[in-house]
Each structure stands twice: as structure tokens, then as C-alpha cells.
Amino acid sequence: MPAAPTPSASLWPTKVAQSGLTNFITPYAMARSAIFSTQVYRGQSARPRYLEKTPLTSVKGMSVFQLAGEQLDQNDADVFYELLRRVIAQGDGSAREARVQFNRTELLTALGRARGGKTVKLLSESLARLTDATFYFEIPGLFTGRSRLILKALTAEEMQTLEYDYDVLIDVELSKLLAREQWAFLRKKERDSLAGDPLAKGLHAYYATHKDPYPVRVDTLRWLMGRQTMHPSKFKKALTDSLANLKSATGWHTCEIVNAGGDMAKVCVVKKPPQAKKPVKTSSSSQSVANHNIKAISWDAIQSPIDLVHLSANELVALMDDQAKSEWAALSGTHNTRDEGSAWEAARGILERQCVALIAVRYPGTDPYDI
């Protein structure tokens, strides 16, 4: 006797469907790969077109390939994330496809775009690219297979019986990319404030998928952001500006390039400032011994200047040698060291040079940022 068919449950994770949905949602596989390039394509700047299975840059642990269609960009990402948000808000992920119907002026308003012939044309072009693009994912334990972003996009011009300007079918196969908590919210207000800076948008999506981001080489980000054809020095300049915009939009504590020399340059993003620890009361006779022990233990634990970003301003000052303390004293008159953020930035800048020198002695000829 054949087994009875198993009822089809909703494919969208319950936690996602119940989370308010006023913000965008991105699967890690999209934010941590070059599916949505941050490159600006205009005029004679032709988009790459994929005619065969081609690997896209992605982080370790996943492989993403584009099988067909043109390279997508951050404008396409805005459109797709808004459509995905609406699909999840509808709450029905049991079907093979999910329908989203909308009028162009309403969608443009939701995207924060002005209404007009040019923006309507750009929207139509984005929908066409999103429909043509086909991908293959290899994500162990999550999803291995082929998927499109949009299965079909009909317009009122093509089908006059349509009640709306567009009738779009999203591939629900994409819901597999959101399983096992492999997704992150993109705060729409923050992303909207980054309009005009596609690189900052790409960085925003990438770092949104990390609770405590680890330092990443500048050149690694150049490829992840789809800027591999851009000269490294020009990319570093653009990256510096976009990191400043990212910090302003998000309020994250640190968004900067550390040790900007050559291939050793890495991007350091710290979302929350280190928490200052309450001082431990000690007797005057044991004070010097206590300070010595804290310094010795802390330096033993620090293997790279990157480790300094996890220390408070007081802990940074406690690590300073005589020369660093002299620099710190000189800076006290020019920095508002009563302000925690300002004090931390100043102390870390001084201590970073001391740390690099120390590691050069410990591990001669080694990149101090790659220990």
C-alpha cells in the first residue's frame, strides 16, 4: 500500500515570517557572495553576461555559481529584497512558487525612488535581469541545487487582464537558503540612507550577517563586492569613503581600514564599543603587583593588533609602555579622553604601533595582522 503523501508545510522559517517584516531579509548566501555586485554599470560599462556555469566569489564554506543571465547589481538587490519581503509577509511558502502583484508607482515609492519614465525603465530592466539570472548553490547541509530568483514577471502590457502593473513569481526554492538561521535582517532605514553608494550597501549586507565581524583583507572584500576589475588603490579609496558612510548610517563603533600598507591592509568593523570593566579595589601594597599581572596576562593573550579592538580604553592604557604612555599624555590635551569613544580611538591608535613592534620581535618576518 503506498504511503500517504506528507502534508506540505511552509518552507519559510517560522521565525522569519513572524518578525515584523518592516526590514529586508537576506540569506547569507547572497550577502556573502558576489551575486549582487557593487559595481556601477552605466553607459559603455557593459555588464558581464554568463553563458555557462561560472563561479562567483564567496566566503569559505559555500560555493555560488551563475549559470545564465547578466551580472546583478545593488539596484537589482533593492528590488529583489523588497519582493522577497512581500513574499515572506504573505506567509505561504508551501507552494513551489509565490506570487507578488504590484503597481510600479507603489513599488517605486516603497523603494524610495522618484517616479518618472527613467525610474520605471530601470525597474523594468531590473525585473528582466532578476528573471533571466540563474544560479547554482553548493552549501553543505543547507542547499545544493539550481535556483532562479524570479520564475516569471508579467506586465499589464503583456497581459491586459492583469489587475496590477506587474505579476511576479518568486522561486520558493530560495527558502532553503534561509534554513538553519542562515539569514539576517537588513535595516531598511539604514540601507535607504546609503542610496547612491552601492559599495556601502554591499558592505552593509555583508556585515549584517556577522554579529561580531572578523577582520577581512581589503582585497578579499574587493572580490566579494564584485569590484575585481577596479584598481586596488582606487578600491581602497572608495572603500574608505564607503566605510565612513556605513558607520554614519549604522552607528557602528568602528568601520575602518587598519594598517593600510600593501597587502596587509584589513577592514575592521566593530559594531558595539568595548564595555569598560569596573575597577577592582586592591590594597596599596598589592596595587603594583596587580597592575603587573594584568599587563602580563593581557599581552600574552594578544596575538595580533586586531585583538586590541576587543579591549576597553582603560585596558588599552594599562598595556602601554613608557613611550606609549608619553604619547598618550601628549594626546590628552588634544582629545576629549573623557569621552569613551574618543579615548578608545586614541589609545588604540597608539597601542597598535607598540603591538606591531612587539610582534615583529616575537615572529620576525610575519605579517602582524595574520598571526
Results as ranks from 00 to 15, higher is better:
35 I>Q: 02
74 Q>Y: 06
69 G>A: 10
32 R>I: 03
85 R>H: 09
85 R>D: 11
54 T>W: 10
89 A>N: 09
78 D>W: 09
50 Y>E: 01
64 V>K: 01
43 G>M: 08
53 K>L: 11
77 A>I: 01
49 R>C: 02
77 A>F: 02
67 L>G: 00
94 S>E: 12
58 S>E: 02
40 V>Y: 05
95 A>I: 03
80 F>M: 10
95 A>P: 00
60 K>L: 11
37 S>Y: 05
33 S>A: 14
87 V>T: 14
58 S>M: 05
51 L>P: 00
62 M>R: 12
49 R>I: 10
95 A>C: 08
81 Y>N: 13
64 V>S: 03
96 R>N: 12
85 R>Q: 14
50 Y>F: 15
55 P>M: 10
54 T>Q: 09
90 Q>I: 02
48 P>M: 04
32 R>K: 15
72 L>P: 01
37 S>E: 02
73 D>V: 05
59 V>P: 00
44 Q>D: 14
30 M>L: 15
96 R>D: 15
66 Q>Y: 04
59 V>R: 14
99 R>A: 10
53 K>C: 05
50 Y>N: 01
88 I>R: 09
39 Q>L: 05
30 M>V: 10
72 L>I: 03
64 V>T: 03
65 F>V: 03
52 E>W: 07
96 R>H: 09
53 K>W: 02
80 F>A: 05
94 S>F: 06
60 K>M: 09
66 Q>L: 04
48 P>T: 08
86 R>Q: 15
82 E>Y: 05
98 A>F: 04
97 E>C: 02
34 A>G: 01
42 R>Q: 13
72 L>Q: 07
64 V>I: 15
97 E>K: 11
37 S>W: 03
34 A>S: 15
48 P>D: 07
40 V>E: 12
